[in-house]
Simulated scan of single mutants.
Amino acid sequence: MKQRIRDLFEKANLAPSRKAPFLSRRYPYGGARRMHSALGPDLAAPTTWRAADTPPAGELGAIFMHTGGANKWLHYLPVYEANIDRSQPIRMLELGVFRGGSLRMWREYLHPQSVIVGIDIDPNCKQFEDPEHNVHVRIGGQQDATFLQEVNSEFGPFDVILDDGSHMTSHMVESFRNLFASALAEPGAYIVEDVHSNYWKPYRDSSMSFVDFVAVLVDAMHAHYPDAESEVNFRTDDPARLREVSVPRITPKLDGIEIHDSIVVVRKASRDLPRSVYQ
């Protein structure tokens, strides 16, 4: 009987919970057909992609293997190395502590004077705090804007923010909205890992996944172009140059967006980036 009830919930795209509101909606991924159509028959033709057991390379890979307890996809490690500066002290915020392995990895990899802050909803994660070595843990939800502001006020702004939290789509989007503008330093890197969870129904608790949100960020990064007619509107010596345009607050702060397998990096500019063409 219980299995039948669970099957009915699954079919109705509902997830039961012991806490209010007791039932929450799930939004199944439905983009496969659109993807195949857009790719065309050649690019969408099926191929075989085989698994490989390749040990991690580089210094971070070695640290990852011997510190233990961190649950990371190995292809994330080169992305971290390319986007995180270990040559000088930084401030890092990681959403999600779990068993503390990631905090240990970052403590060994980063500059000794770097400050590392982890947040988690599990009070047991407090045991992984090590203030003597600049490792701090605060307990609260990544979707709680007030809590995030408190953490930012205490430790921020952060040079790197890493979302390895609940993986719920709504939490990923809300955390970015609450942290990118106010808690991320300029320049800074906002990294969201495990976005593959966006394709699994148990994690799709909102109609907009973080993958969908990244597409919105791409549009926001180009929001100054629709008001122009051509590149002459951005030439420094042209009378048709646009001296100002109305764009979302985030647009001048978007330095770049990197999309890798299961991990996204959004870089924040060190200043409002100008968009000019020089002849």
Score class of each variant (00 low, 15 high):
R4C: 06
A12M: 07
A15C: 13
S17N: 14
S17K: 14
K19D: 11
L23N: 09
L23T: 04
R26K: 08
G31K: 00
R33L: 09
L39V: 07
G40Y: 09
P41V: 06
A44E: 09
P46K: 10
T47M: 15
W49A: 04
A51P: 15
A52G: 02
A57E: 11
G61M: 07
F64I: 01
N71G: 02
K72M: 07
K72G: 08
L77K: 03
L77R: 05
E81W: 06
A82Y: 15
D85C: 04
Q88Y: 13
P89F: 03
M92G: 00
M92L: 13
M92K: 04
L93C: 08
E94K: 11
E94T: 10
G100P: 08
H111N: 13
Q113E: 13
I116C: 07
G118E: 01
D120K: 08
Q127N: 02
F128E: 02
V135Q: 01
V135C: 00
H136S: 09
H136F: 10
V137N: 00
R138C: 12
I139L: 04
G141I: 08
Q142R: 13
A145H: 04
F147S: 08
F147N: 05
F147E: 11
L148W: 01
E150Q: 12
S153T: 06
S153V: 12
E154M: 15
F155I: 11
G156Q: 05
I161K: 07
L162C: 12
D163M: 01
G165I: 02
M168V: 14
S170L: 07
R177I: 07
A183G: 02
A189G: 10
A189I: 09
Y190A: 01
D194V: 05
V195T: 04
S197A: 15
Y199A: 02
K201A: 14
Y203R: 02
S206R: 01
D212P: 03
F213Y: 03
V214Q: 03
V214M: 05
L217C: 03
V218K: 14
M221V: 08
H222R: 15
A228W: 01
S230N: 14
R235I: 14
P239A: 10
A240W: 08
L242I: 01
V247E: 05
R249S: 13
L254Y: 09
E258R: 05
D261T: 15
D261G: 13
D261F: 12
S262Y: 01
I263S: 00
V264N: 04
K268Y: 09
R275Y: 04
R275T: 09
Y278S: 10
Q279K: 07
